[in-house]
Design a protein around this nucleic acid. Structure first.
Length: 573
DNA sequence: GCCGTTTTCGGCCCGACTGTTTTCAGTCG
């Protein structure tokens, strides 16, 4: 069951789309889009708020708040139903086709009665679009191509795939003639968990050579748009890359603009307008004289708008502008702050590398401490026994890792259907650290799942809840537990929540982290490595923690070993 | 429909590219 906030957000997004399609006031549509985002990201559950509380959500006024109350009371909103009755759901679906927006969708529906993607494909093949105003032969071609893309849509890709591609594009273009600077921006720079396309920014004396080099990259399959300032391509990696080329002295304004998010950009541009300034990707200008004031660095632009530099992971219009004005932006945790990793495996269970190899690689990352946490016997395929675990402990105690790195002997316990774990307290008490995770029985009731996690927190030996929602991005949605209750239990019992850094998990996600932090929870950013290369996934976990506004102090594996050990003692005898 | 470090009314972010147009609307980010 989704949070009421998510249901309301989806409803308002649909309402905004329907307003656009029916040719309603574009500003009204934008208001509902904005409200949808604000409600989806709001920490408090809207079903617990009254009319007054709802209006305290920025972007939610009287009319919107009343619609929320109406929805929560009756399960629908009359104004939305009215538009739904005018426009079939399939017409809205048409706007998912690239190059087809609300205006064309309405024309297709009104003139030809087209209300589904299939009907549109048929109509194009029957040449029915020829007589419509604004539809030419190129439009037909683009629509057919767009339909193909939609039908084979891989949607967004995992962040590691996008990062590899982006870094390779940046490396290649940095070598192109006339390129002065090159970097990726967009959602990848903001550290989002999945990426829809890659934005690459170049500062160059002349755009020609770099544009050419770009379209000739080996993984480019198609050039979508090709101009002096912007070129867009599709790649064989399932995502598009946009390249923008700007003059060198526009670098800061352009980087700011292309990093987004769109919502953040709109907010800072509004701020500019209020100061009689105009902000574009070319710089910050005086509206009256047209004179450029600043543009070279992001810091310059923010400063002229009365703001400190805002780190990209915060740029989601989730309060960062207000915090910047008040001087209360968090000092975000960084990868360099991490002193260790608290959830890793070896080939004793389902890891691929030996204890020695994992430890050597961890030492190479400069960690001060490193925990080995192989599986316990309740994941029966791992064939773990007390004897095998104790033998590993002896091996760990004997190892002398380089650079004085300290080894912690831990375990990843399985949280059973009733919330119990593999071993009794007296055996667990001798581990340095216990991670406990759910690995099965994902479909229990909400109450059962909540109780299960709360019981695990109440175990005096459990230090960290591993991959708390068990989601696998794009493959398995997270379990349906009352997370706020779990967060409260973590804070009460001194149990940390994991931010699992593996790109297909990133669990907890940024929004959960923001909510958990309000409960006073501590976090562990862990690689969950099953092989040496996985240790480097930490960067994605850190980015997720940054998106959750976490500081060094919130993350237990940035602490000194002494402070960490005190935390890990928890309720043990 | 929302909102105010000029405003409780009159604004609401800005520019690139494409295709169908003869000067611009639509789409996208």
């Amino acid at each position: 069951m989704a949070r009421a906030n998510d249901e309301v957000a989806a409803l308002f997004q649909e309402y905004a789309d329907l307003i656009s399609i029916t040719g309603g006031d574009a500003f009204r549509a934008r208001v509902y889009e904005k409200a949808a985002r604000a409600i989806g990201g709001h920490h408090a559950d809207v079903s617990t708020l009254d009319l007054k509380g709802l209006q305290e959500i920025p972007g939610v006024g009287k009319s919107t708040a009343e619609k929320i109350v109406e929805y929560l009371g009756t399960g629908s909103v009359a104004a939305v139903e009215k538009l739904r009755a005018k426009i079939p759901a399939g017409v809205r679906r048409l706007t998912a086709i690239p190059s087809l927006g609300p205006k064309k969708a309405l024309v297709l529906y009104q003139e030809l009665g087209i209300s589904s993607v299939d009907e549109l494909a048929d109509a194009i093949h029957e040449q029915k679009l020829r007589d419509l105003k604004g539809f030419g032969p190129r439009t037909e071609e683009k629509l057919l191509h767009g339909i193909d893309l939609l039908r084979s849509a891989g949607d967004r890709v995992l962040v590691d795939v996008a990062a590899d591609l982006a870094e390779s594009v940046v490396d290649a273009l940095s070598e192109a003639s006339g390129v002065l600077r090159c970097a990726y921006a967009g959602s990848l720079r903001r550290g989002r968990e999945t990426i829809g396309d890659i934005d690459v920014l170049v500062a160059a004396r002349t755009p020609g050579p770099v544009m050419k080099a770009f379209t000739e990259l080996p993984y480019v399959t198609e050039v979508i748009a090709h101009g002096d300032k912007k070129t867009s391509v599709r790649t064989d990696r399932g995502l598009n890359v946009d390249l923008r080329v700007v003059p060198k002295d526009s670098w800061g304004a352009a980087l700011l603009y292309f990093t987004g998010s769109k919502a953040h950009n709109i907010r800072i541009r509004e701020r500019a307008v209020h100061q009689k300034l105009k902000l574009s990707e070319y710089g910050l200008f005086d509206t009256e004289t047209g004179e450029r004031i600043v543009s070279c660095t992001e810091e310059d632009v923010y400063a002229r708008l009365g703001l400190p530099w805002i780190a990209p992971p915060l740029r989601e219009d989730r309060g960062e502008i207000e915090a910047g004005l008040e001087g209360t932006l968090p000092e975000l945790v960084t990868e360099a702050d991490l002193r260790g990793d608290l959830h890793t495996h070896t080939d004793l269970t389902d890891g691929l590398a030996s204890l020695e190899d994992m430890v050597a690689a961890a030492a190479g990352r400069g960690y001060a401490y490193y925990a080995i946490t192989d599986h316990a016997p309740d994941l029966s395929m791992q064939r773990m026994t007390k004897e095998r675990m104790l033998a590993q402990r002896a091996q760990v105690r004997e190892l002398r890792p380089p650079r004085g790195m300290r080894l912690l002997h831990g375990v990843e316990l399985n949280i059973g259907p009733e919330g119990g774990v593999d071993w009794p307290d007296d055996f667990l008490a001798d581990f340095d650290v216990c991670v406990a995770s759910i690995h099965s029985h994902f479909d229990q009731s909400r109450d059962a799942l909540t109780r299960r996690l709360v019981r695990a927190c109440e175990n005096p030996c459990v230090n960290v809840i591993g991959h708390p929602t068990t989601r696998l991005i794009g493959r398995r949605s997270g379990i349906d537990a009352d997370l706020d209750e779990v967060f409260a239990a973590c804070a009460r019992t001194g149990t940390a929540l994991e931010i699992n850094a593996h790109p297909d998990r990133l669990d907890l996600n940024d929004e959960h982290i923001l909510r958990a932090k309000r409960h006073g929870v501590r976090f562990a950013v862990d690689s969950h490595a099953h092989a040496v290369p996985h240790l480097a996934h930490m960067r994605y976990g850190v980015a997720t923690a940054q998106r959750g506004w976490l500081t060094k102090d919130d993350v237990i594996n940035t602490w000194t070993l002494t402070r960490l050990r005190r935390f890990l003692r928890k309720g043990r005898a």
